[in-house]
Amino acid sequence: MSDPLHQFVIERIIPLEIGGIDLSFTNSSLWMMIGVIVSTGFISVAMNRKALVPGRMQVLVEIFYEMVAGLVRNNIGSEGRKYFPFIFTLFIVVLMGNLLGLIPYSFAYTSHIIVTAAMSFMIFGMIVVLAIMRHGLHFFSHFAPPGVPWFVYPLLVPIEIVSYLARPVTHGLRLFANMMAGHIMLKVFAGFSVAMAGAGAFGFVAAILPMFVNAGLIAFELLIALLQAYVFAILACIYLKDTVEMDH
């Protein structure tokens, strides 16, 4: 059976080194660029007619638009309007990584922790900077919630800080783990099928079973791909709410 982790290996396509840092154009970069082209191409083709009564593609684009707009509106409020393009971009980047990754022989860049962590830490850094700019010292009262007896604070403040710092870690790790697990599972079942098919006539017939399982898994992974992109965007919205108003 082939190595189920082989699909995650980064391969250089165009070697590139700037200032001693390896910035090669890799299979990961290739699929990021394909994602850029597919998403912008799809949207511009779908919105080409600017129809009053939309066609199928335009409806799909409008559904995504309304969904992200609803996320921003419900979770951040009317002040979240300025973050809308950012959240939309985030959603599309993750969605493209998840969906394009399901094409056989493609590469899912969202199954790399450095990519997901980079996005989650970028959001985290942005939130901390913007929140401190907006609320000043009051931002840190987030770690000292009011309404508890004073002797609880020595315990509570470190817990709050750790849970706050864990946000970007879990945010990035959730997407990474979901995508990696899904892709490994698909590969393992596909590997079963191939291995059984090579083991005589009975094995050839029995190989159909894992193939059907894989078909179901692909449908499931499609759902996961959409869901995780949605979850990533909604969590970004919830965290970004701190830059607009504090809970206390």
Binding site: I10, T26, S29, H112
Partner: peptide, 19 residues
């Protein structure tokens, strides 16, 4: 392969470009 740190700069760079 995800923990191969030598690929990190290129990934980050191209992610930034994409974004």
């Amino acid at each position: 392969p995800q923990l191969d740190a030598s690929t990190f700069p290129s990934q980050l760079f191209w992610l930034l470009v994409t974004f």
